[in-house]
Amino acid sequence: MELILLLFIFALAAFLGFELIAKVPSQLHTPLMSGSNAVSGITVVGAIIAAGTDDGSWLTTVLGTAAVILAMVNVVGGYLVTDRMLGMFKKKEASAGKKEDRV
């Protein structure tokens, strides 16, 4: 039964994803992509569970830890880069004032 519930969640999330993204202006395509790229780092959740379980094998710990590192780079790098990019999108009034506004 629980499997069916997971598939149910999957199906609903898929439709939601389509609805959410269908009408995004092209100016936001890059931030949208790098933002959703950061979200794909959610695999850090699986990595934490893998790294934290003790099954008596060092291999699982190594794989899990490497996965945590990689997923964290994906998450942190992704969000910060997206924020940096979005910080540069300015309206005319705002951009006239300050010339340099880099992180």
Binding site: L6, A13, A14, L16, G17, F18, A22, M33, S40, I42
Partner: peptide, 15 residues
């Protein structure tokens, strides 16, 4: 994991 991964998957398909 399923929800977030799936959102990224579908939004990527649209792009």
């Amino acid at each position: 994991l399923i929800v977030a991964g799936c959102l990224v998957g579908t939004s990527g398909v649209i792009l």
